[in-house]
Design a protein around this nucleic acid. Structure first.
Lengths: 338, 338
DNA sequence: CTCTGGCACTCTTCGTGCCGGAGTGCCAAG
DNA sequence: CTTGGCACTCCGGCACGAAGAGTGCCAGAG
């Protein structure tokens, strides 16, 4: 359908527009790219591309700019992923290696991504759905008050205060702690509910109420912590958005504060590899002039969470994709090591 | 020096400018506020105020706008703190009471403040400097690998992995745990170092290395956690900043991402009550057109952390101060209860 | 000494009209 | 299918003028 040259023209338009931020015309195209044809020919191609909805003109007698559909074609067919330079790669590695704990890893990652892409970076904390339990600790703070501490294999610690319906003895507590750990340590979160289901039966009726409470809290914690947290950074880069500021930037900032929106954004991407969602492709109203590039990352072979960047649809897709992918890989490495 | 009426004029200027965002002239002033004098008189006063540096005009033959110095006088002498309406107060209480843990309290607080003031809210996590130790737990994960868990009276939990120089027995570990807790539970962080100093002497030489390591990690955790974390929200409100967008908003966003800057901002305020820092009064370059209203909050009688808002120097000081103070009080209550 | 009204002056803002340039669409010829 | 030519459109910038808002100053009244 689309001849080779027309695709080439589209590519040129995208590249120029990304660079200059201004509608690009036929003449400029033939000059800056060495298409071997005249402006008139390019004009014909442009007219065809416009008919097909890949490009549009803001007003008559202005140059063309790519539409969402145009960008889509560009990333699908025309753009590769630009690998980072080796100094860049070394910088990434050095920067991430200094991290001391999980928070720090995520924090550094977000700053790194923001800096590399000069856009807004979003990093999801490693998910617990695929994580396993490393240890469960029960501390008696008061006769009828416990603290539950859950430690995961990703190095995360979650704690909960529990008010017991009845006081519980230290010995019973120790017993519960031991039984609980012997059952769930090393298991995935999703397995835990069925593994602890019959646990109360091993105890005196007096204590069952308390034990039920403890188990309920544990399961609740698991579920709640499966709803992932995330960190964002580089919002200052939004100022490079465009000239028509307040209108564009405001809804984006609002969307970025809604963690739910972002989680959905990252979560929806089913593709295990990189996902690019362009303009209206992401449902959220306020993000209709932004694109989201996201990718899963993980400590082993499995992806445990996503990270990505949010930027204007007019972004350098190859470069951004390269940076996102590279960062994801290195973070994966770092996580695997620790 | 400044007659009563001149102060009144300044107050009127500040109020009008905050409302309209436009330079305010003598005629408008006499109309909107019932000063009992003519525009000409007001003009004389304005000239005097300008000589003293309280107001300025953007260009000849424009109205006046308050300077930082003018705002300073306004908040010091002319403005009260506007109490919230009781529906507002009830809303605050209801909203905060739903919180389930510390993260949630801080998260809700930041959203609440941002919404009430329509500005950027900053909430510092409760500081540990004044906090006391509720419990220290040591878990043997592997023969030469421990996990240290520190629980504070503010409900915060911090954990650390420890690689021991030598394996340590379960009995020794239990002994250490018991001794450690008997010494430090209920004590302030600042007291801990001297309290545990001689602890290794009670153990076999074989274990001292490990114990030293544990203690070192504990102290390190205490110090590190004294560097406070914080949460910000409501950045979308920055879009209401002014018309001259990108220039103003960019450095502010950048500053907000530098936690160091914010911590300094909150930390510098020595006043136990409310602190208002106007424009250039806060050192940071990028924040020279913003004001920061901050106040300490705490679970008991002592302030354990700060919270506040960042907004344009042209802000509704009485209202903002009222909201900040009210929120701080309710958060304090919530923390005291839990 | 203070307040007031009047008056001339200064700037900004906004609407208008005009021009140049960039870019398009179409057509006829190669 | 490509190309050069040509007429047309529309945006952006600029100059000009009028309107409006606000000031500073002065002279007179209380």
């Amino acid at each position: 359908m689309l001849s080779e040259r027309r695709l080439e023209v589209l590519r040129a338009i995208v590249q120029d527009y990304v660079g200059t931020e201004e509608p690009v015309g036929s003449k400029a195209l033939t000059e800056r790219h060495n298409l071997k044809v005249s402006p008139a020919t390019v004009r014909n191609d442009m007219a065809a591309l416009e008919d097909d909805g890949f490009i549009a003109q803001p007003h008559t007698s202005a140059g063309r700019i790519p539409t969402d559909k145009g960008y889509r074609l560009f990333v699908d067919k025309l753009a590769g992923v630009k690998p980072l330079s080796s100094p860049e790669r070394r910088a990434i590695q050095n920067f991430l290696e200094g991290a001391v704990d999980l928070d720090d890893v995520v924090g550094r990652t977000v700053r790194l991504l923001a800096q590399l892409t000069r856009q807004v970076a979003v990093v999801q904390y490693p998910s617990l759905t695929r994580s396993t339990v490393r240890h469960v600790e029960l501390l008696g703070l008061a006769p009828a008050r416990l603290m539950l501490v859950l430690i995961t294999d990703t190095g995360r610690v979650e704690q909960r205060l529990i008010d017991c319906p009845a006081p519980i003895g230290e010995a019973v507590l120790a017993d519960l702690r031991a039984r609980l750990n012997s059952r769930v340590v090393g298991e995935r979160f999703t397995e835990v509910p069925s593994l602890v289901q019959d646990l109360p039966e091993a105890f005196d009726a007096d204590d069952r109420g308390t034990i039920q409470t403890v188990l309920a809290t544990l399961l609740e914690t698991l579920v709640e912590e499966t709803e992932e947290r995330l960190m964002i950074g580089g919002t200052a880069n939004l100022t490079r958005f465009g000239h028509d500021f307040p209108l564009t930037i405001r809804p984006v900032l609002e969307a970025l504060e809604e963690q739910v929106v972002l989680l959905k954004l990252l979560g929806e991407a089913k593709d295990p590899g990189m996902t690019v969602r362009i303009g209206h492709e992401n449902q959220h109203e306020g993000l209709s002039s932004t694109s989201v590039v996201s990718v899963g990352y993980g400590s082993g072979d499995e992806a445990v969470a996503k990270l990505g960047v949010v930027g204007p649809t007019r972004m350098d897709y190859p470069g951004t994709m390269g940076a996102v992918r590279a960062v994801a890989r290195y973070v994966g490495q770092i996580l695997a090591e620790s």
